[in-house]
Amino acid sequence: MDIEKLKGAWKSYTNDLRERGSKNTSELREMLSRKSEQSLRRLRKNFLIEAGINLAAIPLVLIIVINQYAQVGDHRYYLSGFLVLLLLAFLGFLYSSYMRIYRYENLELPLEQKLEEQVKRLRVFMKTYAGIGYMLYFVVFIVSLLVSAYDHVMGALPRLGVGFLIAVILFFVLVRPLVRYYLKRLYGRHLDSLTRYLNELHDESSITHEQHD
């Protein structure tokens, strides 16, 4: 079976496509306006879903800290402000990362170069996302422990030590696997396929070897 046969069939098929679906300029113009809006809406939706948890956490943090941490007096306002700032910074990080990754969808780059950029940025994003998540977990846990022993930190040191140990155990048993699973579900599969494509384009070494054979 010769591939040249397929060339002929492909030509015939694509000629049929032209006959069937050719669009004039005004149809294309209308399609472009409609689809551009859809595309923007989808990007916003994706971002909002991802950021939703963080947005919901902001009032929650304010309510919990202000109502439950009365023993630290006015410090609870600074504390809640600090936690909200951390969440907002995380939100900013999510937004800028999304924009940076999506930017490569619309650039005129050879496939290999585009894949390299996307893989690189997606890896950095996932790593940073996990790092910030872990840091936030420890910050919140330690702050809670310190607040619970606000008036007698020195006396409560053994209790704080045990609390910290529990935080570390919880981190390895629950938080880290959960964050990893979440990231893998959301971005991991896409990263895997991009990496696979990139490796396929990169197999120069095997090609050189093949040529020597």
């Binding site: 030509k11 780059l109 496939l111 290999e112 396929e200 384009l201 120069e204």
Partner: peptide
């Protein structure tokens, strides 16, 4: 990736054009 390469080949693109589109070398 293979589909892309074979489609460009069936479209009778030159090796240089395929290389430029895919970001590969001509030899590749």
């Amino acid at each position: 990736i293979e589909k892309a390469v074979i489609m460009l080949y069936m479209e009778e693109k030159t090796y240089d054009d395929i290389a430029e589109i895919m970001g590969m070398t001509r030899t590749n």
